[in-house]
């Protein structure tokens, strides 16, 4: 994950209650989603950014996962995300995200 984004997420967790924060990802495939999700839960697996060795355990979803889809305004979802639903391998992404949440997230429902 981009080093600046790691810093911004880390700062947000210091400003707000980490339990109330949900990180939404838009990565294009499973592995990249998994790395980003791992970064905000267990810490930066590439040992490059501010979240290296920092286990925030945040709640994290990909925007195309069923768990969060119901929360969007359907019109906004249609306009912003529906095309990408045709393009992305959503099953692969969802599987990767679920595995990371189960292993590292401290707050997932």
């Amino acid at each position: 994950m981009d080093l600046e984004n790691q810093k911004r997420i880390k700062d947000l967790t210091e400003e707000h209650n980490p339990e109330d924060i949900v990180v939404l990802l838009g990565a294009a495939e499973g592995e990249a989603s998994g790395i980003a999700a791992e970064t905000v839960t267990n810490g930066d697996p590439t040992f490059a950014g501010p979240l290296t060795g920092v286990s925030l355990g945040l709640n994290v979803y990909h925007v195309c996962e069923e768990e969060v889809k119901a929360d969007y305004d359907p019109e906004v979802y249609e306009e912003q995300v529906s095309m990408m639903e045709m393009v992305l391998d959503i099953d692969e992404i969802a599987e990767e995200m679920k595995a990371i949440r189960e292993e590292f997230s401290k707050y997932s429902a």
């Binding site: 495939e29 990249a32 095309m83 045709m86």
Partner: peptide, 25 residues
Amino acid sequence: GAGNVPEANMKMIGALAVKEGDLER
């Protein structure tokens, strides 16, 4: 972990053509 970039772009172009009715799914 960044996938096949040109292919992903082509899928997006195709998917938009499907949404706009220029291409069958």
